[in-house]
Each structure stands twice: as C-alpha cells, then as structure tokens.
Design a protein around this nucleic acid. Structure first.
Lengths: 143, 143
DNA sequence: GCCCGAATGCAACTTGGTTGCATTCGGGCC
DNA sequence: GGCCCGAATGCAACCAAGTTGCATTCGGGC
C-alpha cells in the first residue's frame, strides 16, 4: 500500500474543493483511499489509532459528513445498522455487495439494472442495488 | 380498516406455525397487517399505546424477531438506520421504495432486475433493489 | 391443583451517532 | 510580525435503537 501517494492524492482532492486540507481530513480521506471496500466509522477509528494518529470520534463523524457533502465520499447503511464509507467514484447504476457474514460492503462495477415500476404519484430519484451473499474471505473461512 | 378480520387473520397465521397465539404476537401481527407499507419499532409501540394495549419494547423486539424467523414478517433497514417491518409475502426480485423525506419503505411489485457480476470468489445469495425518491404523500406535502 | 417451559416485563447496559461548548488552528489583514 | 475571526477540533454529556440478564407470569399437560 503506497500511503505516500494516497496522502498526496487526498490533499489534492480536498484542495480541489477549495477547502483547506486539515490534518483530520487528509488522514480520513487517505484511509478511505487505502481501502478498496468500504470502512465503518469504527474501523476508521481503529486504523487511525494504529497509525499513532488517533482522532476524536466526533471529528471523524464530522469529517465523514463533510466528505460526503463535498462528494468525495459516499456512505451506505448495511443490514447491521452500521454506516460504511468509501471514496466516491462517478458511477451510475452503482451496485454494492454486502457480505452477510462479516457485514462488509464492496462496490461492484456498474450494472445495467432496469428500474422497477413505482406506484402512481411516487417520484423515483435513484435506484440502489445490493447483492447479498458471502465475500470470498468469509467463504474461505467457513470452508 | 377492518381490525376484526385482521385480528382473526393474525391468530390464524400464528396458529399455522404451530405456536400459541399470545396476546403480544397477535397484537403485533395485527398491526402489521393493518399497514400497507412497513412500520418501525417506534411506530408499532406508538400504535399499541394508542390502542390502550401498550406493550413492552423488549417484548416487541422479541415478537418481531420471532415473526421474522417464522417467516411471517420481514425487516428492512433504511438509510436512517431504523429497521422497519412488514408482513411477508412470497416474493422474488422483491423491490422496495424508500422515501428520502419521511423514511418510510413501501413494497414494490416484483421487478425483472438483472444480477450484476460479482467479483470472483464471491457467492451471491439474493439481490436487493431499493428505489429512492419521494412518496406521493411527501411530494404533495412539499408542493 | 401442580408443574414446567415458554412468554413477558423490567432494568441495566451497549453501540452508533449527535449536540453544546470551550479551545485551537490557520489564513487574511493591518 | 502581530491581530482577528471564522472554521475545525476535542471533550463531555447526551440520545435513540437495540440487547442481555433475570425474575415473574402465563398457559397447557398431568
């Protein structure tokens, strides 16, 4: 994991929003860039602590909110009621894979999903597709 | 709302599981039958209280769990981290509509959605489609 | 009527998340 | 360089959803 380049990338992305790249923002975005799935608040706290850069849970919540509002991150709520965050890529028909065993969420390549009919009077904004099952890791672990 | 028939229907459904139709179970299932969308734990508590049949929150959680396990109800977690429950119908490709304004979940008729490719080593069990937008009520309210 | 397991109710607790407020940071201005 | 002001941070207290442990009650079989 090339954390140096993630650091630079993070700073760049934040600067592009016209905001100052504070330590907390850079750190969180860097952690998100370093994961290829999505990370829960808890996991991010842990990761920050492991890097000897512990950050306040409130700051983390606020930074995550900020990143989501700015469109740099996106959040998804799993069946376990836990929100998970990932870096945002431009995506349409964005699908997720949720592992029923470990609860982690993975982003899937875009999929050509047809929109179901909505009842009359309802306005559809976007459609969210989640595939449930077991991730490779959990499958191996249980084998 | 014909609550008498809902009561009988509830008793019947529970009996069909070979379980005793206790007051709490009948009441909760009856409430679920009476709603055509889904109801949160909180809404059910409120409804029970309104009917002068208040029930303990723990009992409600346990009854809901029981109903889900027995296949009489199903639960869905919304973006607001709140689980909502509805009566279960047999459905494949079952889609939901989640109102971004009021957070309520509606069941949509089955939809012919194509399953996205999963990464190698992943096992897909089922696919969950949720349409986001505004429900008729919230649209009217904001107009 | 008695017994036993299942169902219920209460209280205490855990977890994910929020709010309020005081402090610190950092960048523009003199 | 020093000052000022708003934004960002950190702490503590709080809240809501959900869970756990345990004592009590219900209800059906004997």
């Amino acid at each position: 994991m090339n954390s140096g380049s993630h650091h630079d990338k993070a700073v760049q992305l934040i600067k592009e929003c016209g905001a100052s790249a504070t330590a907390a923002r850079v750190q969180v975005l860097q952690l998100l860039l370093a994961t290829n799935t999505t990370a829960s608040h808890q996991a991010l706290m842990q990761a920050a602590t492991n890097e000897a850069q512990p950050l306040d849970k409130v700051t983390l919540y606020r930074v995550l909110d900020w990143l989501v509002v700015r469109g740099l991150a996106h959040s998804v709520t799993g069946q376990d009621r836990v929100r998970r965050f990932g870096v945002a890529h431009v995506h349409h028909g964005h699908a997720h894979f949720e592992c029923d065993a470990c609860g982690r969420l993975f982003c899937l390549a875009d999929c050509p999903s047809t929109q179901p009919r909505t009842p009359p009077g309802f306005e559809a904004r976007h459609i969210d597709v989640t595939v449930h099952g077991r991730c490779a890791e959990c499958l191996q672990a249980s084998a």
